[in-house]
Amino acid sequence: MAWNLDADRPIYLQLMEKIRTDIISGVYQPGDKVPTVRELAAEASVNPNTMQKALTELERIGLLYSQRTSGRFVTEDEEMMKDTRESIAMEQIQSFLKGMKQLGFEKEEILDMIRDMKED
């Protein structure tokens, strides 16, 4: 679980993205308990305040919820998970398309290339 953080973007946003991806990809299952702020901060080598900010934001959008004394947990809301999965996918696709367009590829060409690719 390497936390590759870019230096020119706010860290808390990047932390949010990483945790979100971990949730969607199944590293954290719905209902799982998330490690404490300290543990995550130490793992990511970031300031605990920053990690706290990221986790609070994830709580705010509903991916995580906290129970007063027991800690933070991943949501079990399936709708939420589906929406998030789609959002991440859209973000990836948009970023990919942007890159391809810069290289001069059109949408049709891109779709053909994808279709012709062999399955891994």
Binding site: D6, A7, D8, R9, P10, I11, Y12
Partner: peptide, 13 residues
């Protein structure tokens, strides 16, 4: 630090 990164789009370095 967050303010610098989001406003200037740069790392502190």
């Amino acid at each position: 630090v967050d303010e610098i990164r989001s406003q200037e789009g740069k790392s502190i370095d």
